[in-house]
């Protein structure tokens, strides 16, 4: 009878608990239902729609979308020299940005990881991370002020008779290198931190010149971290459209997509697949080089 009383008092919550108890799939299902509906139906669904839209076309006369599958957009991308040049220019810039960032990032990451004292190291980590929090757009605007005709760069270069890159590709290269630099410093720093000091000491004790230690010990061990950082710098450059739009007159993949979205959405969709394909290819190479042990 006492048992009966307890059963009567069972709250709704406890009855629910009893129902879920021993039904782990139901538990997981009810936790994941809403988030999966959002991510799978809305987000993955959108990506699938993007893929399908890429095969649609726009009626040149009425401007309305013709929802029939055709290779037209892709043929245009491959056959029209302007688009080939845009893709090539973007990939080239992404590669240059990656190399530039690696060259700037390695010394400071090395100093942070292996030379600086504890306090300096902590201060440098903060110094490198802080700009990540400053608005992305604000940073681009700062570079507009630097690169403008009467801006900081031309003012600084004038006495030595030089002139800045103006609105050329080099401006995009500078701004992108600036925007993504912290994403290169951090993985390299983490990779260098993981190299035991004893390995470096052993190399030194065996009489290696610091340069030899660097070339034969440090560089091979930290190279995968550099590749890991390059994933960020490369793919971020590939997909960006605001930096090229705001500091340059040249067309890049991102700006072309942005410009065609209003009057030719199917073509924009097809063009948006280009960075995805290039990034996937790059990830494949990075995996071979061991980058994923470092991300």
């Amino acid at each position: 009878m006492a048992t009966d009383a307890v059963i009567v008092k069972r709250s709704a919550g406890r009855r629910l608990a009893g129902f879920f108890n021993g039904r782990p799939r139901l538990q997981i299902g009810s936790l994941l239902a809403a988030p999966m509906a959002w991510l799978v139906i809305l987000y993955l669904g959108s990506l699938v729609v993007l893929l399908i839209t890429a095969f649609w076309t726009v009626d040149p006369l009425s401007g309305s979308v013709i929802k029939e599958l055709s290779w037209q957009n892709f043929e245009e991308l491959v056959n029209v020299p302007v688009y080939r040049e845009i893709v090539w220019r973007t990939v080239r810039t992404a590669a240059l940005v990656t190399i530039t960032d690696a060259l700037i990032a390695f010394p400071i990451a090395f100093y942070m990881a292996k030379v600086a004292g504890r306090k300096t190291k902590a201060a440098l980590v903060v110094a490198v991370l802080m700009p990540l929090w400053a608005s992305y757009l604000v940073k681009i605007i700062a570079w507009r002020a630097i690169l403008a005709e009467h801006g900081v760069l031309n003012w600084a270069l004038e006495p030595i008779g030089l002139h800045g890159p103006g609105t050329g590709v080099a401006s995009v290269w500078l701004v992108m290198s600036y925007l993504w630099l912290p994403y290169m410093i951090l993985p390299i720093f983490a990779g260098l931190e993981r190299i035991p000091d004893s390995l470096i000491a052993a190399s030194e004790d065996l009489g290696a010149h610091p340069f030899t230690t660097f070339r034969k010990v440090i560089l091979p061990l930290s190279f995968p971290a550099v590749v890991a950082g390059s994933i960020f710098t490369f793919s971020l450059t590939l997909g960006d459209y605001l930096a090229p739009k705001l500091v340059s007159n040249e067309q890049f993949i991102g700006t072309s997509i942005f410009d065609s979205i209003t009057n030719n959405q199917p073509f924009a969709a097809a063009f948006a697949l280009v960075p995805i394909v290039v990034v996937i290819a790059y990830l494949g190479v990075a995996r071979k080089l061991g980058a994923f042990e470092h991300v």
Binding site: Y43, S46, V49, V279
Partner: peptide, 21 residues
């Protein structure tokens, strides 16, 4: 994934789904 893919891809995909589909 939404943050790993270039923002422009997420932007085009969502805008496309909202307006076209």
């Amino acid at each position: 994934l939404p943050i790993a893919l270039p923002g422009i891809v997420t932007g085009v995909a969502l805008s496309n789904t909202f307006t076209q589909v």
